[in-house]
């Protein structure tokens, strides 16, 4: 068995624009995919957001970039379980998510440092994603 054969059955990563996120989520939902996870990776001047879906081993990732200070539309209207991931994005990376169904407003994690993956994100965003988090004891 080669290393490629040992890898996941199928795995594709597709780059999309932030405005297409909700439309893509709708498409995946109607095609029967389940939401597997969402996560962020901090880049030099932006935050990369990954949305992973699976259908019978077909693992699809959609990737978009949010420039500092930008916002991202929530997909909780399509996949209700996304509220955990989107609150995590706000707390750890300072990515502002609009229309979140359950918004903890920066209180999802009890952090000593606000947005630890992107220090100063609250200032970048104009309105702080986690205004009370800075300096709060864990």
């Amino acid at each position: 068995m080669t290393l490629d054969e040992k890898r996941d059955v199928k795995r594709t990563i597709t780059e999309i624009e932030p405005v297409s996120v909700v439309e893509r989520a709708h498409h995946m939902k109607s095609a029967g995919y389940r939401m597997v996870e969402m996560h962020c990776t901090r880049l030099a001047d932006a935050t990369e957001v990954n949305y992973a879906f699976d259908l019978a081993g077909d693992f699809q990732v959609f990737r978009t970039r949010i420039p500092d200070g930008g916002t991202l539309p929530s997909v909780t209207g399509i996949f209700s379980c996304a509220f955990l991931y989107e609150n995590e994005m706000q707390d750890l990376f300072g990515v502002r998510v609009t229309d979140l169904s359950v918004d903890y407003k920066g209180r999802f994690y009890k952090l000593r440092t606000a947005t630890p993956y992107h220090p100063g994100a609250c200032d970048d965003a104009g309105t702080a994603a986690a205004p009370e988090a800075a300096g709060k004891e864990g």
């Binding site: 209180r107 994690y109 009890k110 952090l111 630890p116 864990g138």
Partner: peptide, 12 residues
């Protein structure tokens, strides 16, 4: 639900 009481930052 509320979590985050023992967030350790192991990913970081």
């Amino acid at each position: 639900p509320s979590i985050g009481f023992i967030h350790r930052g192991l990913e970081k």
